[in-house]
Design a protein around this nucleic acid. Structure first.
Length: 824
RNA sequence: GCCCGGGUGGCGGAAUAGGUAGACGCAAGGGACUUAAAAUCCCUCGGGAAAAUUUCCCGUGCCGGUUCGACUCCGGCUCCGGGCACCA
């Protein structure tokens, strides 16, 4: 008895990884003979350590990339680093390291970790967004957008920390206070750059319909985010004033129910009247300490103050009190709203709190009554007022009032969007400098394209939370590109979502130094398969879609959407909650990699849950996955001797193994289907089932039929596993003497002959409840089945004395007898 | 608060188009091997009742509906998760 060689995962994996790298097995080239397949997992932020979420993301991507290669595609799978961002500045302050040094060290470490996982990346195309080679083209693109009128400046609100003198991100505001200073934050208006994503709102919404291979939930979320609605912009005159208030409402039918108006604390009218209004000044001061996040606005206590002024109802001329309300924000819409407490939840609560009138004007269409003192009626119905609309449906009243009011120029139909333009200015250091110059004479002027990139000074160690760029004269001072007089650079940097909105295209033109993109980007884009966390469902994916369309309109790309197929992976949990350092429930991939190897880790993370579901980490689960690979190793080696002697003749049929080949190919069929629908966890179940079959047959392995079966079985099994556990599969493929490299072996195919059956198991039900399963000839007709059942004593007993009312027969599947229930 | 998901044994999960609920694995219990342990292999494994392998009842978060038949479709709830525009 010869002893089995030991399964040394690390040795096998490292040597194969070296071999693949030396022979550039994953280098992508444009090839018009093969269908291209661009597979991309969202690139990581280089936080320093690979975590389980990364392992999951990149294993899923690698699985698909490798499988598509086996399916004959010309595959591109690149990787890079989303390297600008807040954590580098935090680390810099904490550890006194330059953000650039910290970032590049992290990248170095994480690159090694990814390589050790055996990902089939084309490393030549590695992109790092904090390098000038990358961000110069982002600056160039920004200038193109500027030239096309898609960039503008306006003031908007930020969280201001009055102690640290810096703008805080939403996540840095904890219970209304700065995370470092603990100071009560203030809402501050500052001037910022915006990209006109709203110019593409219609297309972004309408083309969602074409994204057939995106999860419906993501499309729904984006559609709601864009929030296109038709409504009326209505003008309310203000009593004893030339000023007017403009509001937008989709429910013009409730106009007669307006009992007050609410405006933002920083609405121009509120500003105007606050000069001699102490209470209003105090109220505005209090509003300053509110946060800007929408979740905050929605859940905080709703407060208001009567301004003492009245607006006039456009229909009746009735006096409507104008209130200032803390939940109305100048950044959204017109900063003013008409309140209809009888027909709106929030208006109702506010009216109850401040004892404002509730005036019902719409009733349920079915004629039922409604208690307007307990809750508002928010649906559409039958309109009661004004008189001219009495009895009309909400829709009819809307049209009627719109006609009337637009004739008198008091209203205008308008398409409104919930989507707001994208504010891209950040008052941060570690980001792409915004390529603009502020000149006293010429205003904001873009940097000349020949002077790009505007380099971000590196090697700077931060000493305080504010951006150092303002304090660097050599960065700040520059002649105006227009009049050449002394001027100053913009010191704000881009939102890091800007980098992640076009990186997928740059991978194609990674070494192009004369242009942002070239023809190769048109060849490779759109990405055929994009993989990333569901948390990016709206923002990142919407911004990237916007950029793609803008790049198309510049002629740089020729498709309408960046990502054809989207897979949103679930989170990795431990003990029911998200792995995080603060909870102390992290699992370090590096330790497991050392203990079990890359294949085990990849296998477990694919097996443990379907890709879109959250994945509960299990230490014993990963041990089980390792055990499976050990069994595979053992069984493969046990059969090795025999396989080399087998002459494989695929046309040869063996009666002896008909049944087991049926089982085998049924699994292969299931596995193929599971790959198509991206349910990869059952791909692993299938592989396990095949190994169970092979193990049984391996005990005997004497006849030609059995040898043939083993040869076929291992060939299928190893190819199914190759995208998931590439190292052990490649190694055993060669050990067992299969031809060529498994990297290029074809994806398994079902033998339809093996699936032909003479007999099938038919389910017998009575009143929908399972009573038996019968082996019957395939394609039997109903009559012969019924006859068969009456011969069966057990079943006949059930049917005896029952009045059969109906028989449902689904051929090759089930027969259901519907009988009258004889007793209660 | 609003928008979008999810809830199936002790655990992770399976059930492809409304047709056998619990595949595959983990844990647990029992057994074999061993001086012993580990490893490995075999058996059992949703709950209850009767019972020789079988039979009956209950069971997919909760309540209700559609259907010959519902984990699957519809209505209402509940709990958990994701997003809410400056975390990425």
């Amino acid at each position: 008895m010869s002893t089995l060689p030991r399964y040394d995962a690390e040795q096998i994996e490292r040597s194969l990884q070296d071999y693949w790298e030396q022979h550039q097995r994953f280098k992508a080239q444009e090839n018009l003979d093969k269908e291209k397949f661009y597979c991309l997992a969202m690139f990581p932020y280089p936080s320093g350590q690979l975590h389980m979420g990364h392992v999951r993301n990149y294993t899923l991507g690698d699985l698909i990339a490798r499988a598509e290669r086996m399916r004959g595609k010309n595959v591109l799978q690149p990787i890079g680093w989303d390297a600008f961002g807040l954590p580098a500045e935090n680390a810099a302050l904490q550890h006194q390291v330059a953000p650039s040094d910290w970032t590049f060290q992290n990248i170095e470490h994480m690159r090694n970790q990814l390589k050790r996982l055996g990902m089939a990346y084309d490393w030549d195309r590695e992109i790092t967004t904090c390098t000038p080679e990358y961000y110069r083209w982002e600056q160039w693109f920004f200038i193109q957008l500027f030239k096309r009128g898609l960039v503008y400046k306006k003031t908007s609100l930020v969280n201001w920390d009055p102690v640290d003198h810096t703008v805080l991100a939403n996540e840095q505001v904890i219970d209304g206070r700065g995370w470092r200073s603990n100071a009560l934050i203030e809402r501050r208006e500052i001037s910022q750059w915006f990209l006109k994503i709203t110019a593409y709102a219609d297309e972004l919404l309408d083309s969602l319909e074409d994204l057939n291979h995106w999860p419906q939930e993501v499309r729904t979320m984006q559609a709601h985010w864009i929030g296109r609605s038709k409504g009326a912009q209505i003008i309310f005159a203000i009593e004893d004033s030339k000023d007017i208030l403009e509001v937008f409402s989709t429910r013009l039918d409730t106009l007669a129910g307006v009992t007050y108006l609410a405006i933002a604390a920083d609405h121009p009218f509120a500003k105007k009247i606050s000069a001699h209004h102490k209470a209003l000044q105090d109220f505005k001061e209090a509003c300053k300490h509110q946060q800007t996040a929408e979740a905050e606005l929605a859940t905080m206590e709703k407060k208001g103050l009567f301004t003492g002024h009245y607006a006039l109802h456009p229909l009746s001329g009735e006096r409507l009190p104008i209130w200032v309300a803390n939940f109305v924000i100048m950044d959204y819409g017109t900063g003013a709203l008409m309140a209809v407490p009888a027909h709106d939840e929030r208006d109702f609560e506010f009216a109850q709190k401040y004892d404002l009138p509730i005036k019902a004007v719409v009733l349920p269409a079915n004629g039922s009554t409604w208690d307007f003192n307990s809750k508002p009626f928010v649906e559409k119905g039958t309109v009661q007022a004004p008189l001219s609309c009495q009895g009309l449906s909400s829709e009819q009243a809307y049209q009627s009032l719109l006609n009337t009011l637009s004739q008198s120029h008091q209203a205008l139909e308008k398409i409104n969007y919930r989507l707001r333009d994208w504010g891209i200015s950040r008052q941060r250091y570690w980001g792409t400098p915004i390529p603009m110059v502020n000149c006293l004479a010429c205003g904001s002027v873009p940097v000349a394209e020949k002077d790009l990139p505007v380099l971000l000074p590196t090697g700077i160690t931060l000493t305080k939370p504010q951006s150092p760029l303002k304090d660097l004269p050599e960065f700040l001072n520059t002649p105006c590109p227009n009049c050449h007089q002394p001027a100053q650079r913009e010191t704000d940097t881009f939102d890091t979502f800007v980098e992640s909105s076009w990186y997928y295209a740059r991978y194609a033109s990674y070494n192009q130094h004369q242009a942002m993109l070239d023809g190769r980007a048109k060849y490779w884009t759109p990405v055929d398969q994009y993989i990333g966390g569901i948390e990016h469902a709206v923002l990142h994916l919407l911004y990237a879609r916007f950029f793609h369309k803008a790049l198309r309109d510049l002629g740089l790309l020729n498709s309408d959407e960046p990502f054809t197929r989207l897979l949103t992976q679930g989170m990795v949990l431990k003990d029911g909650s998200k792995m995080s350092k603060s909870k102390g429930n992290t699992v370090d991939p590096a330790i497991l990699l050392k203990q079990y190897g890359a294949d085990t880790m990849r296998l477990f993370i694919i097996f443990a849950a379907p890709p879109t579901a959250s994945l509960e980490w299990s230490d014993s689960g990963i041990a089980g996955s390792h055990r499976f690979l050990l069994r595979l190793w053992e069984q493969a080696h046990k059969s090795q001797l025999h396989l080399s002697q087998v002459e494989i003749d695929p046309l040869q049929k063996f009666k002896e193994t008909t049944n087991i080949r049926y089982d085998l190919h049924l699994i292969v069929q299931q596995v193929s289907h599971d790959y198509e629908r991206q349910q990869f966890n059952t791909l692993v179940s299938g592989a396990m089932k095949i190994l169970n079959l092979l193990e049984k047959e391996n005990l005997a392995r004497q006849t030609d039929a059995q040898k043939h079966f083993l040869s076929e079985g291992f060939s299928l099994l190893l190819r199914i596993l190759a995208p998931i556990t590439p190292h052990i599969s490649a190694f055993l493929w060669t050990e067992l003497g299969y031809p060529g490299s498994i990297l290029d072996a074809p994806w398994p195919k079902v033998d339809p002959e093996a699936l032909k059956r003479d007999e099938i198991a038919l389910v017998v039900q009575i009143n929908g409840k399972l009573k038996a399963t019968l082996q019957v000839p395939a394609q039997s007709d109903q009559k012969s089945i019924e006859a068969l059942i009456l011969e069966n004593t057990h079943l006949a007993k059930h049917l005896k004395g029952q009045a059969i009312q109906k028989v449902i027969y689904v051929p090759n599947r089930l027969i259901n007898f519907v009988v009258e229930v004889s007793h209660v």
